[in-house]
Amino acid sequence: MFSPEGPTLRELAVQALSSVERGYDLLAPKFDHTPYRTPDRVLDAVARALEPMGPFAAGLDLCCGTGAGAGVLARVCRESVTGADFSAGMLRVARERTPPRGPAVSWVRADARALPFGPAFDLVVSFGAFGHFLPRELPGLFGQVRSVLRPGGCFAFPVAAPPRPGSAAYWTLLGFDTAMRVRNALWRPPFVMYYRTFRLGDVGRELARAGFRADLHALPEFGCRPDGSPRVRLVVARASLRPPRQPAAGRVNS
């Protein structure tokens, strides 16, 4: 399926009926031959947007998968790059593909909701992973990111504009999320992967509560929608120099 090197329909079915961790362990050897891997043009666009903001010293790729995002960090970090993921299978593939040159690279098995690091990073990036977290988990997730960043550090991730209601993409994502909800209602363990739960307004509020000031940067490589708004933006959230206050109002600048 997808390509001759990609997973078969049977392999995808076995993955979908597994836990998230076990599913990605099974998918790891063929993951880069599926549409789930972040496209290179997205990675390149993010790297270009981050380069003027750096250089950074140490970077973390959160939920790194097979390590595609580590290449972005290698372009903007001088000293070290760390990839963290809770799938041993994905990390195994990432280790095999570690580039021989550039900053030192390490791979750590860890749950993003309980990161085993102190404030050791100047930049945290993440690509395509937020659908694995329920909305109620965002405060804890963003709090973990804040805890591993040095004061003034940066948390960056791309966000695509939601598809227009009634479009083919809209119905495709709605259908996928509905199927996943039915699957999780009928089958255990659950497989959390939803495309429509990571809403920018909610994200802005939770970032502010976690101690970030977030701004949006258009990625011009992807053009604009008919209304003139960018198709893809980069969220750049800066960690405040002081601990976050509770409660706090959130905002994301456009």
Rank of each mutant, 00 (worst) to 15 (best):
P52Y: 14
T98S: 03
D215G: 14
L219I: 06
L186D: 15
A13F: 09
L27C: 12
A179R: 15
V76E: 03
F133V: 15
D122K: 02
V125E: 10
T66Y: 01
L91K: 03
T34M: 04
A110Q: 02
P247W: 14
G166S: 09
G67Y: 14
F142K: 08
L12W: 00
M193Q: 14
R146I: 03
P52V: 04
P244F: 03
L200C: 04
S147F: 02
H217T: 04
R95D: 06
G59I: 14
P163H: 15
F155K: 14
V125F: 11
T172Q: 10
P55C: 13
F2E: 12
G102K: 05
L123F: 10
T34D: 10
G131C: 12
P165V: 14
G131H: 00
R251M: 06
R22L: 01
V192D: 13
R150L: 08
R199T: 10
V192L: 14
G128W: 12
D215Y: 02
S147W: 02
C77Q: 00
G166Y: 06
R150I: 12
G23A: 07
A57R: 10
V145R: 14
P7R: 03
L149I: 01
P220V: 06
A68W: 12
K30H: 03
C154H: 13
R37V: 12
A214M: 04
A94F: 11
V72R: 00
P4M: 13
R164V: 05
F130L: 15
S3D: 04
V81H: 00
